[in-house]
Write a protein that binds this DNA or RNA. Structure first.
Lengths: 210, 210
DNA sequence: TCAATAGTGTCTGTTAGACATTATGGA
DNA sequence: TCCATAATGTCTAACAGACACTATTGA
């Protein structure tokens, strides 16, 4: 499942299903080949079939075997999530399209399960992997970054707090470029910084438990 | 991979590998059968083959295909983590044993990968799933619970803070039983409470990023 | 009595979020 | 000029962690 930020939503890349399928769209998929080497190798190959470049981040979302009727009559599918920087594939052409994850086209049951698990996995991994940065180009404004976090978390964040935490953790460093978009004061561009501080010890967050 | 708290460590259940294998121990494993229904069904069956009861919690850790030489010459393995309440299998018998996850017996490469991924997954899921409670019997002391959290996180927690957060989130409720273990004041037994408060909105934790 | 563990109250430094204000461009 | 967005300073309530203390048992 390839995702990218689109407007204020997370979008998933779907490709046209072959003639004769019940659904008209499907997740990009493929059958492992010896030359792939690993499962991730297969995922990279499948992703490159639908993208102009390799996803900026890729992680497995799990194995799925429930619900028959995966496009190719396979017993088991291994789902992957891939992050595509915003703007990488702005005009996907005839055979592919970005759909907001909340208003997806009808998908085969197993593919729906993959989308759910992958979307949930993205949220959970937000704190431990630099997913948000991989959904942006190398230089970005802090508002861009905050928007990505808001998309992934599903709610608004406080601007001042967001920036304080960001600078406090030394996660970004300013470039000397600025970008002006429409009205309003131009924003400084930042890039991800190489972290030096070792991560703080985790505290328990009981309030997240269901 | 079945885990349980043992002393101050997390322990993994290994079973004796068949004669002729290079390794002497292996994770419990099995090949899916039609009667299993789902992947989780297979995992439950495999777990019940090594335990007196079904694991209190079970979740998939992913699909693994790297590194040849999985015990049964299969191309792909799907790993699961199962939580076994402390004391469920205190004397595993001849053909099985608990090993601290940090001093495991030599395992096949793919099984090592499963153990790493599963252990990491446990930590990540701590905040979103009631894993810690599933590693304890229905009634437990707050010190027990804290010990489990410390095992899973890998570091000590502050007692007063832990209890404040616990009560604040209304995650546990007292029973009218007390347990005395050796010296010291007896501890009140608690059980997991049915949560009513809706979970608080997540904030971003930049300090956890690598 | 001592040792060990359970459980709680208070204090303090840190921080998330609210609010307000300044800065800087385009329309 | 007005408006929209960027960026930052200040305040406050909440909270994590430190510390100290009481409570209650077995040895």
């Amino acid at each position: 499942m390839l995702v990218t930020p689109l407007d204020r939503h997370l979008a998933v890349l779907l490709v046209r299903a072959p003639e004769g399928s019940i659904e008209r769209w499907t997740l990009p998929w493929g059958v492992p080949q010896a030359s792939d080497g690993t499962l991730e190798g297969t995922a990279v190959r499948v992703a490159r079939g639908a993208l102009p470049s390799t996803p900026a981040w890729l992680e497995q979302a799990g194995a799925f075997a429930d619900g028959r009727r995966h496009p190719g009559e396979v017993d088991l599918s291994v789902g992957f999530v891939g992050a595509v920087p915003v703007g990488t594939l702005s005009s996907p052409g005839e055979d592919a399209a970005w759909f907001p994850v909340s208003e997806l086209q009808p998908l085969a049951p197993r593919q729906r399960a993959i989308v759910s698990a992958a979307a949930e996995g993205l949220r959970v991994r937000l704190d431990y992997a630099p997913v948000a940065f991989r959904l942006l180009p190398p230089a970005f404004t802090l508002s861009d970054l905050q928007r990505v976090y808001e998309i992934l978390l599903g709610h608004r964040l406080h601007k001042a707090s967001f920036r304080r935490a960001l600078h406090g953790a030394a996660l970004v460093e300013p470039t000397d470029e600025w970008r002006s978009e429409g009205r309003g004061r131009p924003a400084q561009l930042f890039r991800q910084a190489v972290k030096r501080r070792r991560p703080r010890r985790r505290t328990v967050r009981f309030d997240l438990l269901p």
